[in-house]
Every structure is written in structure tokens, then in C-alpha cells.
Design a protein around this nucleic acid. Structure first.
Lengths: 351, 351
DNA sequence: CTGTTAGCGCGTTCAG
DNA sequence: CTGAACGCGCTAACAG
């Protein structure tokens, strides 16, 4: 009835548990004949080693905790970036002999995150899009828990464990391309988490500003449109935006809002790109499968994911940290962007 | 340097490990003053209990293994059903005090699955869309490993642990609605896994046939169009299909192919629903956010997910199995279906 | 209320 | 090549 242990196998095979252990771990210190007997006993009893005990004994779980906010989980649909990340992390972890444990926390403050994390079994943690404040790394460091973020976290990158796309560059190349197409009346729609901007959006905005600056176009706060929600809320806010003033070009920092915008344009007979140019941010495959095909700043999420896992494993194994932290994205030009022929200027940024 | 153990805390607080353990587990058998001392020692040393040891001791991991094929993982984008399931399972498991461990297997045969599963730490397993053959339940049962599938698995439901949507009903109501709209030239596109039909698609097809039968429309094999692939392959096969013969209505059993079909129609100026009616299968939110809004057979994935977790926990805790195994889906009528005015008949099913 | 004792299942010494 | 002995960190049973 009860599950057989290594001891039961030992009795059955007329050896000691040590020998069974050696067989289980492919030690070559076992005579073929003995091994044979043990193997048979294992089969007879249907013995399955207690993995918890093995973890306990070895001190390694071969599990990586993937920490995501419940908000993030609930945004899974149409959130192509998260999907790709999740997929690539899983595949990479698996190829390194690790499994992914999903850990969610309803509250995203540093203390809640830490509480949840420290009660988990994992060799290290991948923390996605932390909106927790800056004390989280300190808590984790103090507890000796290895972790890696998927974005810059503090303002001191040299103390920071993360692997990310170069978001500054992303904002920059998107804006530059639109400016080249004679757009100046641009809106940059960025997601909000709990009312605040994530670091990656701040970086994209900085890149956006740099491009404007290079082209002598004045920046104004109205160009940044924060969208604090999901599909429906995004849709409504796009509606509101276009009721007030129709920009000639949109940069949209998250995929859900991008879909919402395209749906809005479809429903209201705005033509993309004739009436409005649109640039998305995220994994290329996603935008290729939208209609119209979307010009997008394309992040190499497989690269990021591999880097995150590599860096984390280096930390876990106390090896030198050789992983590159950042990679430049690429602008993929498709059918959603066109030259601006109107004279429409950002009404707010008139010099 | 080394992480402090319960023993170190005991020394620091001048008590025994048992007392520390009591404090950690909120036992009320500790004098407030002693508790205070222990709590301080814990804080001073930054003590974090060894979760592996706790798991080992208690024999429970509070982890549910989610077994998915690597193929499934790689189809994550646009696979709304899987996304919803994943999300809802995570949320539900979390609300029950469990975490989800992602387990993937490149090979989907029963033996590979079993090998992977038995080397994992989890109290039970949720096995998604198993394409493994029927021996998997037997292997699991023999090893005493609790599991639940997300679809009927064997042909003996009474021996089967699963919670699913009623797929027969799904196929039936979709076909019936199209028949009511005067469509007879219908194609039912179903996904293929490793060249075979999953049980849920077989059920949907059976429902489809029943409706045809009720309306006196002859079934022919050509009405079932297997699509063995992802976005691009789906797109090409839709193209091929419409080159050969244009049906007046499409039922599409998976979301990726649905998107591919809509993209194909967009690219080739087919109007939905004027030129072709389309019904999707999956979670409602997904189809509501497509353009045109898609009529769909809507599965209550939250219900299914909750049921899967409930049933699994009942098995884990050896409680009576009270969970319902199946729920009828609902047909949500939106903008992608219209009455057929042509006289086009399924050329293969002419009586 | 607190301490003592014992053991979960396994792997790794160290002897032989 | 195999066995005996020990301990990983924690908790539960039993004493006191």
C-alpha cells in the first residue's frame, strides 16, 4: 500500500540502501550482477525515488521560480511579450535541466513579493516586470536568494541583475522612423502599472524624446498617453483620444492596447496607415499576424530569456557573471506606417 | 556565511529547536515572552526556514505539476484556450494554496510522459491535451500518482479522471446554427496532433455529424479538414481549400487557425460573413476581440480549470470525488455568421 | 509551556 | 565492490 522506499528495495534485492542508491545514481561502483538484481527489485516493487528527499539531501531543487503579479497573469491573452517570454523561459530552463515554478503575488510591493518568494522551493527566481519598489533586491540579496529581473530595476545598473532589451533604443528608432516619414504629431501610448510607469517605459520615452530632440521637434507631456488598463479600457481611451485630437502617428508600448487600437480603427473606419500610422512594440511574430501587418520594434525575446536563465544559473552556481545584459531591438517595417502628407502638427508642441 | 537553521535560531534564543518550530508554525503553546525572544533571534539571524526540509518532513509539496508538451508550449501565442486555461489554473491553484510547476516533455508518448512526471516534485499532476496513448493512466495509477486530464482520455469515462467542456455539444450547436442559417456547404477544420485527432475533436465531429443528420444533410469525409499546423501552415491550407472549392461556412476548432483564416480572408478580400460564415471554438473574450467579432462556441474555461484543480485536490487528499466532469458550452452569436442565400451545396454530399 | 528523542528517505562518507 | 553509520533541517510524540 505505502510507497516503497530505498530500504524496501534493498531488502528485496538483498543488498543495502547504499547500493540501491548507487544504482539509482548510475555509479559505476556496482557489479553488473548486483546492479541487475537491484534493477529487478526496483521494477518488482515499482519503486520511485522520493524526489523531495533527494532535493532535501542535495540542497538543489532544479526549480526556477517565475514570479509574476496576478495582474500580469490575468493579462496573458494578447500579451504577446509575456507569452513569448514565458515560452522561451520554459524551453530554455528545460534545456538546462530546470523546471519553472509559477509564483504569483496579488500584492506587488517589495515586502509581499519577498514573503511569497522566501516560502518557495526554488534554486533561484526570475522576477518579471516588478512593480515592487527598490527595496526588493536588497531583501533578496540579504537573504542570499539568487534572482534575475527582466528589466532594469534600480538606477544603479552595475548592482542590478537583469537581462533586457534596450528599451531606450526601441523608443528612439520608432520615433526616428516616424519623424523621417514627416510625422510630428505623434502620440506614445504607454501602459501603467498601479498608476506608475515601469522602468522599461521610462527608457522608451527617453529614447522617444531623444529622437524628437534630434529632429528639432519640441516634446510636450501630452505626447505621452498613459493607458492604465486592459482591452476594454484601452479601447475606450483610444476613443477618447481620437475624439479630442487625431494624431497622425501612434507608438504603442503594449500589445493589448495595440490590438485595442486596431479594433477601434476597424470599427470607426480609420485607415491604417493612410489616416494614422501605427508602430507596435513586442515580438515580431505577433505583429506579423495582425491585420494590417504592423510595423514594429521587435525584441529578441528568445535572446532575453536565454540570458535571464543563463545569468540566474551563473548566480546559483556562483560562477562568473558573463551574460550580456541588454540587446538592441530592431525596427521591422511593415504595412502600418506611411509618409505623412498632412500638415497636422502636435497642437501642444508648437514652438 | 551559511544560511542559519532552526538550530542556530534555537541557540541564539536560548531555547530548543522544537520551540522555534512551534513559533514558526504559530502554535499557541508558546509563552508570549519566549515567542518574543525567538522572533528576535529569527530577525537577527535573518532566518528563513528550509522549505525543502518542510516538504520532506510533511510529505506534501503544495505543488501541482502542469504537464504540457513542448509543442503545446510553443503554440502559446494566439492559442487562447491554452492561455485561459493556464491563467485560470494558476489563479485557482494559488487560491487553494498550491503553486504550479510547469513540466514539459518533448516526446508525448506515455512512457516519456511517465518518466518525466515521476521525477518531479508535486502532489499531483494536471495533464493537458495528452496525445500520449492510453497506457498513461495505467502507469500513473499503478505508481499511485494523482492526476487529472483536461479532456476525456480513454473510452471508459467512468475510469477516467478529467474535467472538460462538453465537446460533443459544442460541435452540435455550431453545426445546428449554421444549418438553421441555410448553410449546408460547411467545412469543419480541426487540428491534428502528430497526425492524429485528439479526443475532444472527435467529440466535436460527432456532434457536428449529429446535427447534419437531424437536418437530413449527408455527411461526407471531405467536410472534415484536418490542419496539422500552426499559423503559417494554417494560412496556406486555407488558401488551398478556397482555391479548390469555396464553402459557405467554416467551423474552426482551434484559435490559431481561426486567426489564420481571418487573415487570409482579409488579404484576399473575402467578406465575413457575406462571403463566408465563420464559427470559432474557444474562450469568449478572445473572439470578441477579433475583427469581425466572431460567433463562437464559448467554453467556460474558468469552470473547467476550477474543476480540474478541485478534482485533483480531492484525489490528493483522498476525499470523495464530487466534481462534475463536464459542462455544456454556449453559442455566442456575433458578426461572423449570416444566412446563406446561395444555393451552393457541398459538392461531395449531394444526395 | 518547554525540552528530549526520534525519524522522515536519501546520499555520502568511511571501513572493510 | 559493498555495507554500516551518519546527518541534512525540520516536526511530532512524548515527558516533564
Amino acid at each position: 500500500m505505502k510507497k516503497p522506499t530505498i530500504h524496501d528495495v534493498a531488502l528485496e534485492a538483498k543488498v543495502t540502501p547504499s547500493t540501491v542508491s548507487r544504482v539509482m545514481n548510475d555509479s559505476n561502483l556496482v557489479k553488473p550482477h548486483t546492479r541487475q538484481r537491484v534493477l529487478e527489485a526496483i521494477k518488482n516493487l515499482g519503486y520511485i525515488p522520493n524526489n523531495t528527499a533527494r532535493m532535501f539531501k542535495s540542497g538543489k531543487s532544479h526549480i526556477l521560480g517565475l514570479v509574476v503579479s496576478t495582474q500580469h497573469i490575468s493579462e496573458l491573452s494578447f500579451n504577446a511579450g509575456f507569452q513569448s517570454l514565458f515560452k522561451a523561459l520554459t524551453v530554455k530552463a528545460h534545456s538546462e535541466g530546470y523546471n519553472i515554478l509559477i509564483i504569483t503575488s496579488a500584492n506587488a510591493d517589495a515586502h509581499s513579493y519577498f514573503e511569497v518568494i522566501k516560502n518557495q522551493v526554488a534554486d533561484g527566481f526570475i522576477i518579471l516586470s516588478p512593480s515592487a519598489n527598490e527595496s526588493l533586491p536588497a531583501l533578496l540579496d540579504e537573504a542570499g536568494i539568487p534572482y534575475v529581473f527582466n528589466m532594469k530595476y534600480s538606477n544603479k545598473p552595475e548592482e542590478d541583475y537583469y537581462v533586457t532589451s534596450d528599451n531606450f533604443e526601441g523608443g528612439y528608432i520608432a520615433a526616428k522612423y516616424l519623424l523621417d516619414l514627416n510625422h510630428t504629431d505623434i502620440r506614445f501610448i504607454v501602459g501603467l502599472v498601479k498608476g506608475g510607469l515601469m522602468s522599461f517605459n521610462m527608457d522608451r520615452i527617453a529614447g522617444f524624446k531623444k529622437a524628437l530632440d534630434e529632429y528639432g521637434v519640441a516634446f510636450s507631456d501630452e505626447m505621452i498617453v498613459p493607458i492604465p488598463g486592459q482591452m476594454e479600457e484601452s479601447y475606450n481611451l483610444i476613443h477618447q483620444l481620437f475624439q479630442t485630437h487625431k494624431p497622425t502617428a501612434l507608438m504603442i508600448s503594449n500589445e493589448i492596447t495595440t490590438v485595442a487600437a486596431l479594433n477601434y480603427f476597424y470599427d470607426h473606419n480609420y485607415r491604417v496607415p493612410q489616416d494614422v500610422s501605427v508602430i507596435g512594440f513586442g515580438p515580431s511574430e505577433f505583429f506579423r499576424n495582425l491585420r494590417p501587418n504592423l510595423t514594429s520594434v521587435s525584441f529578441d525575446i528568445a535572446w532575453t530569456s536565454n540570458g535571464i536563465v543563463d545569468l540566474l544559473l551563473q548566480r546559483i552556481e556562483s560562477k562568473p557573471l558573463t551574460t550580456e545584459r541588454s540587446k538592441k531591438p530592431e525596427l521591422i517595417i511593415r504595412d502600418s506606417t506611411a509618409r505623412n502628407h498632412s500638415t497636422s502638427q502636435n497642437p501642444y508642441s508648437a514652438k
